[in-house]
Simulated scan of single mutants.
Amino acid sequence: MGQWITLTTSKGPVAAWQAEPTGTVRGSLIVIQEIFGVTEHVRGVAEQYAAEGYLAIAPAFFDLVEPGLELPYDDAGMKRGLEIVGEIGLDAAVDLVEIAAQAARTAAGNEKVATVGYCWGGTVALLSAQRLALPSISYYGGRNGMFVDQPLKAPVQFHFGEQDAHITPDIVEAQRQAWPDMDVFTYPANHAFNRDASPAVYDEASAKTAFARAVAFLQENIG
């Protein structure tokens, strides 16, 4: 079972959910939230990866603007979440990933760190590979298309829903073209198909297949 820890940043303390595995630690994973905060679902994702042998840390990025905030999965929550991530900015988000990664290395006693991110966090995960050289798993990163002209410094695995109205096939194809050596997977599912807290979009079969692929990616890249 996980617990809340505190990360020290230049902008003040930031909470993070830390899920510790039992037995030998394979490495560490930074879990990067959607635009709703470190919700029960995000904490559950961290626990899911901890069960596979990875120390998982999910920083509460919203703490950079409004500490302790978790938003509902509705239109009002989405609107507020978009406002907050816009205020945080992607540069500050990547800086927080770097701080969390160092905390993970210390806690795990292991230098191997990767990231996994969802929606907004999917793009932060991509940037973590481009700027921090962290192997990363990017789920339906809506802003990924803005960065296809930037090289990768670490491997990235991509997951997209074929029914995602926000990320059209041409955007997915641009990522295949930009990084032909990387796996770009698509599923017969919608945006946020991994979020089991939202029955309207959750697709169990796609989520399970993607998770198995993500674990295989981690085993290959960090142990």
Rank of each mutant, 00 (worst) to 15 (best):
V148K: 02
A100V: 02
Y118V: 00
R143L: 15
V97I: 14
S138I: 00
G161P: 10
Y139R: 01
Y139Q: 06
L134T: 03
Y118R: 01
Y140A: 10
N110P: 11
V116P: 10
M146T: 00
F147E: 06
G145V: 00
G142I: 05
V113M: 04
G142R: 09
N110M: 04
M146L: 15
T115M: 09
Y139F: 15
N144I: 07
A101E: 00
A101K: 02
G121T: 01
A114R: 02
Y139I: 04
D95F: 00
L127E: 06
M146Q: 15
S138A: 15
E98G: 12
L152E: 13
W120V: 06
V113T: 05
T115L: 12
V97D: 08
V148H: 07
G121D: 07
G141I: 04
A103K: 07
E162K: 08
A154I: 10
M146I: 00
D149G: 14
A100M: 01
T106V: 13
Q150L: 13
V94W: 06
G109C: 05
R105D: 09
D149Y: 00
E98Q: 14
A103E: 14
Q130V: 07
F147N: 07
Q102T: 10
A108K: 02
V97C: 11
S138D: 11
N144S: 13
V94Y: 09
C119E: 09
A108L: 04
L132Q: 12
Q150I: 13
G109N: 05
D95H: 06
G122C: 11
N144E: 11
A133W: 05
L132Y: 04
V94K: 02
G109H: 09
I99A: 14
L132R: 04
T106E: 15
A107Y: 05
R143T: 02
G117F: 07
S138W: 09
C119P: 09
V148L: 07
K112W: 02
A104R: 01
G109D: 13
A114C: 14
H159W: 06
A125G: 13
V113I: 08
V124T: 15
G109A: 07
G141C: 11
P151G: 14
T123M: 03
G141A: 11
Q150A: 15
F158Q: 09
V156Q: 08
K153A: 15
A114T: 07
M146G: 13
A104K: 01
R131W: 12
G161D: 11
Y139S: 04
R143E: 14
C119F: 06
K153S: 15
W120A: 09
D149S: 15
I137R: 03
G161C: 06
A125Q: 04
A101T: 00
A129W: 05
L127G: 11
S136T: 07
A103G: 06
A107P: 09
F158A: 10
L126S: 08
R105M: 13
F158P: 10
N144M: 12
N110T: 03
S136H: 09
Y140Q: 07
V94E: 10
L96W: 04
H159S: 13
R143W: 08
